[in-house]
Amino acid sequence: MMKKLLLLPLLFAWIAVEAQHKQEPAAEHYKTLQAHSTSINPARSWMDTVQYPGADYGSSITFLLAKPHYLTDQQFRQISQSVKAPANSSDQTRSELNYLLELQQRRTPEQEKRVAMLGEIGYWPQVNLLPNHPFYQENLKHLFFVSREVHGDGVTAANFPAISKLLQGAMQDMRLMEFTVKYQQLRPRPYHLEPQLNAMAKMSSPAFASGHTLWAYLQAYIWSEINPEKRGAFLAVADEIRKSREIMGIHYPSDNETARLLAHRMLIAYFNNKQFKADLKAAVAEWEANATALRTCKYNSSRFILYKTLHLQSNLTC
């Protein structure tokens, strides 16, 4: 009885955090797709014999040796085991493959150019262990991609070191979560199950869940804590990244929706971590101290390209 009473404050705190950080509903197209059964369909049983081929594993499997940064081992285990991919032979997977084929038919050269660029974006924690790494600065630039799309090029690791520290910790958790879930479930990529799918890239890790979508939404949620008034804009960037993986034909919609759910569960868990809350507090203070100066930058209306330096009294650079 005493143990249960001691757990009550933690339970109430968890409920309060979830109530304060309610998640937006699934995208409309996924609401339709998830209405189909996720269970095995004997009529397509051959599909359940297909797994992501072990010969195609890349170096990403080494992330399984890492430790989480803000998440406890228990939190990490609970979140990573809270999701399950639809069966390959399921009606939902078949409907998702049909949806991807429709996207392929409607794909335009402009879309292909944009999604190919988005496919090159991504922060890799191991790169920033070595300041002399040839991609060190580019990797830090990618770390701020979601916010740069909203605020402009003045949002950098150099200008916002406290925010950089917060994001780097979360991205370490993200990569570990991504590849733990992927290698637990070994879901084949859509092009492994649908020969008519002409994917724009071949990937060196299993499909479920989408790493691009996971980092995009986790960053969108964290930036929404730093600058709540731009939440809609951050989520719009994350949603574009989510869509890009489907347009490319390399992720099922359920890979992306699961990544969105995982990102939100990670955020909720973070609010039970003292270090995360301290780092978030420092990030918010840093943003509030510099956001006014940042807004004095002038933006090109098409892609937020900065063309004027900030006032001399600011330490920021555009």
Rank of each mutant, 00 (worst) to 15 (best):
D173S: 01
Q172A: 13
S302C: 04
M177W: 07
R106L: 07
F145W: 15
A220I: 05
Q74G: 10
N290V: 09
L118I: 01
Q196C: 06
N132S: 15
E225T: 05
G169V: 08
Y136T: 10
L316K: 01
R189W: 04
I305M: 06
K31A: 09
P228Q: 01
R148C: 02
V50T: 01
K84I: 11
S164Y: 02
S80V: 05
M1V: 15
K84V: 14
I250W: 07
W223V: 00
R94M: 14
G122F: 02
D173K: 00
K4H: 15
P109Q: 08
A236H: 13
V146A: 03
H142W: 07
Q75A: 07
D279V: 00
Q51R: 10
R107C: 03
R44P: 11
G169P: 02
D91R: 04
K4F: 14
F76Q: 09
N272E: 09
L235D: 10
A157L: 09
L294G: 11
S314F: 04
P253C: 05
D73P: 07
R260H: 09
K298T: 11
I241L: 08
Q81S: 13
P125N: 03
F276W: 06
Q34N: 12
F179H: 14
E96C: 07
F63E: 14
R187Q: 05
V150S: 06
V237P: 02
E240A: 00
T296Y: 07
K182M: 09
M177V: 04
P125A: 07
K67N: 11
G54E: 13
F208G: 05
P195D: 04
H251Y: 01
F208V: 09
E28Q: 12
F63G: 04
V83W: 04
Q184F: 06
T317Y: 10
S302H: 11
T49K: 15
E24H: 06
L7H: 08
